[in-house]
Write a protein that binds this DNA or RNA. Structure first.
Length: 464
RNA sequence: GGCCAUGUGGCGGAGUGGUUACGCGCCGGUCUGCAAAACCGUUUAUUCGGGUUCGAUUCCCGACGUGGCCUCCA
């Protein structure tokens, strides 16, 4: 079955054909590590983790290289360092900010069921030429200057957008239209308003590296061009990120990489995930609805957040709501109950077909519901397919007992006490003292426990 | 102002030029001392106005709503 992916550059869904099936190459823009990651940041991480898993399934786990960078040089990081560690020298303060934030990000993302990418390079390791010869930012900028795609002005090195005939193809912007737009900043030293910074000078206090253009730091876009080339080569298969990165970030990455290397494409497929709102409003600090992954993980297992994210197709907008989370939690409780302890099996064809159709996760989930029903009805084969499909998507990372035990632990309920009450109730029912048995049931309900009677006895669980 | 998405039942959310998935909820049933759970079954929708068509939710045009980008942003 073919994998089809929507490509932002050509604006169509196309059959995916890797450049080298023995080394399928994927790059996704990672976080700028200055603060806790929010739930919007989690979307590309989860979406492209699903793609990574699918590619590994199709081409083999060792045949896929996934690179997600960590941006640890940025003016926002500098601001945060100055604010949070006013006593420390800036570089030391920056390290504190980026280390703790990056570690937190790794922990958050792991809890969301995401596999670690093959490589997670840090921008600061790719500013200057490296002993191992991997592509670095300074060398890339030198190549751009040598090829006439960049110029020095006002102490900066700038990319010359007019030197690239099809600049703007990804975002559908023409250079002359840009001029008409009133909001493009006009800097006197730029040849064209859309020219962007490749290298800028640093003051003595700012982080900086010695370069042919003096002590400075890289512009915003060059790091991704360097790190993608370092690990994936001049042209690779898939480049992903959030919709908002199309312009200017990805547009400028394309310009830098293609012009520095003299290639016709940076990546063959460009994928962008849609945005996220919270309870119908856009997420912002001023509205007070800014939700971090970390906060959510206090209230919900990571898999609940993951499922909630995948209920919507990755290119559609998603409204993140408490109601949706409750529904996702309920679904996962059921799935764990039906399949968590099943072993073996392979993902079902319906499941794989849905996933291969541009990561149509809603339809994938519908296929899962179908498997769930036939598994619950006693079909052993489908139960194996169901479990294998779920695992491939990044679910069922723990046993059914651990899953329900976690909920019980979080609720602080004493299992021995509940078991005692239940046996009292069973005894009352045996002697047909229904008044007493109902009283005990009410007592349990007040504790937040729901009981389930069956032929084999009484079980209980925590009411959500 | 320019560019780009998007609008499906009570809710979430797919597909499709001709009987509209799937899940949650609601309702009914089986089971139960009564419930709950489980299982079975039922129910309801394609923003509006034009156009193309034998036929449109699906294609085209317009309006309106929502969101994004154009400045750091997933």
């Amino acid at each position: 079955m073919d994998l089809r992916l929507y490509d932002t550059l050509s604006r169509e869904k196309r059959v995916f054909a890797p450049i080298d099936a023995d080394n399928v190459r994927l790059y996704v823009c990672g976080p700028t590590v200055y603060d806790f990651a929010h739930i919007g940041n989690a979307r590309p991480v989860i979406v492209f983790d699903v793609l990574f898993r699918l590619l590994r399934y199709i081409y083999g786990p060792d045949q896929v290289t996934y690179v997600r960078n960590i941006t640890d040089v940025d003016d926002k990081i500098n601001d945060r360092a100055l604010r949070d560690f006013p006593g420390l020298p800036l570089n030391e303060a920056i390290r504190k900010v980026t280390e703790t934030t990056a570690n937190q990000f790794q922990a958050d993302v792991e809890a969301l069921g995401c596999l670690p990418p093959t490589h997670q390079p840090r921008a600061t390791d790719f500013v200057l030429p490296r002993p191992d010869g991997k592509t670095d930012m300074v060398t890339l900028i030198q190549q751009l200057l040598a090829r006439g795609h960049a110029y020095e002005a006002g102490g900066e090195v700038l990319f010359d957008t007019q030197s690239m005939p099809d600049y703007g193809a990804l975002s559908g912007r023409k250079l002359d239209e840009q001029q008409a737009g009133a909001r493009v900043a006009v800097d006197a030293h730029k040849k064209h308003p859309t020219d962007f910074v490749l290298w800028k000078q640093s003051s003595a206090e700012e982080p900086g590296w010695e370069s042919p253009w003096g002590r400075g730091r890289p512009g915003w876009h060059i790091e991704c061009s360097a790190m993608s080339a370092a690990y994936l080569g001049e042209t690779f298969d898939i480049h992903g990120g959030g919709l908002d990165l199309i312009f200017p970030h990805h547009e400028n990455e394309i310009a830098q990489s293609r012009c520095a290397h003299g290639t016709h494409a940076m990546a063959n497929t460009w994928m962008h995930n849609g945005f996220l709102q919270v309870e119908g409003e856009k997420m912002s600090k001023s509205l007070g609805n800014f939700v971090t992954i970390n906060e959510l993980l206090n209230d919900w297992p990571g898999e609940v957040l993951r499922l909630n994210m995948l209920k919507t197709h990755y290119r559609s907008p998603i409204d993140w709501t408490l109601k949706g989370l409750e529904e996702s939690a309920k679904t996962l409780d059921d799935w764990y109950w039906v399949a968590a302890d099943a072993k073996g099996g392979h993902p079902s064809n319906k499941f794989l077909e849905a996933l291969s159709d541009d990561l149509n996760t809603p339809q994938t989930i519908a296929a899962l519901h179908g498997l769930r029903n036939s598994a619950a009805a006693g079909d052993k084969k489908d139960r194996g397919k169901f479990a294998a499909s779920l695992r491939m998507l990044g679910f069922l990372s723990e046993s059914a007992a651990d899953w329900s035990g976690r909920k019980q632990q979080a609720s602080g309920i004493d299992a021995a006490q509940i078991d005692g009450l239940i046996s009292d109730r069973t005894a009352a029912r045996a002697r047909k003292d229904f008044k007493e048995s109902d009283r005990i049931r009410d007592e349990l309900a007040a504790l937040g426990v729901v009981i389930k009677d069956s032929k084999d006895g009484t079980t209980w669980e925590i009411a959500r």
